[in-house]
């Protein structure tokens, strides 16, 4: 089964009030987990997105789609990056817990719709 593990928020929010040691420690943890996932062959994909403040949102205005500056959700609720891993839900949650345990920010684990039709 494939799971997407999502992180939220922007750079400013994540590091504005953190010490350099905290930032370095967080990076080291992420690198360690990333390497672990690569080595074990569980990693399907992983990407980090540019800061949500750089996002543009396209909305219908007066009947026509118009791009506006800024993310769709609040910055702290915007997708910041994700892992997609091939693993059990238990493993996905254990992995996510390691990151949340360090950062304190909530993260989301979602199953990917990867099953063939059975009817």
């Amino acid at each position: 089964m494939k799971y997407m593990i999502m992180m939220f928020g922007g750079v400013g929010e994540a590091i504005a009030d953190r010490s350099p040691e905290w930032i370095t420690g967080f990076h080291e943890l992420m690198m360690k987990l990333d390497n672990e996932l690569r080595e074990s062959g569980e990693l399907v994909d992983s990407q980090k997105l540019m800061d949500p403040s750089r996002a543009r949102t396209v909305r219908v205005v007066d009947g026509a789609p118009v791009p506006t500056d800024g993310p769709f959700a609040e910055v702290k609720e915007s997708l910041a990056g994700y892992w997609i891993i091939e693993a059990t839900e238990e493993r996905a949650i254990a992995l996510t817990a390691q990151v949340v345990g360090y950062s304190g920010y909530p993260m989301e684990v979602r199953r990917i719709m990867d099953e063939p039709p059975q009817m």
Partner: peptide, 25 residues
């Protein structure tokens, strides 16, 4: 600068620079 770069190492470098100048630390 950290918010507008598309490079992860650059973002970390710039973010650390900002953090080192933060009054709280």
């Amino acid at each position: 600068a950290a918010r507008s770069t598309a490079s992860e190492p650059e973002q970390r470098y710039l973010g650390l620079k900002a953090a080192r100048l933060a009054p709280a630390h």
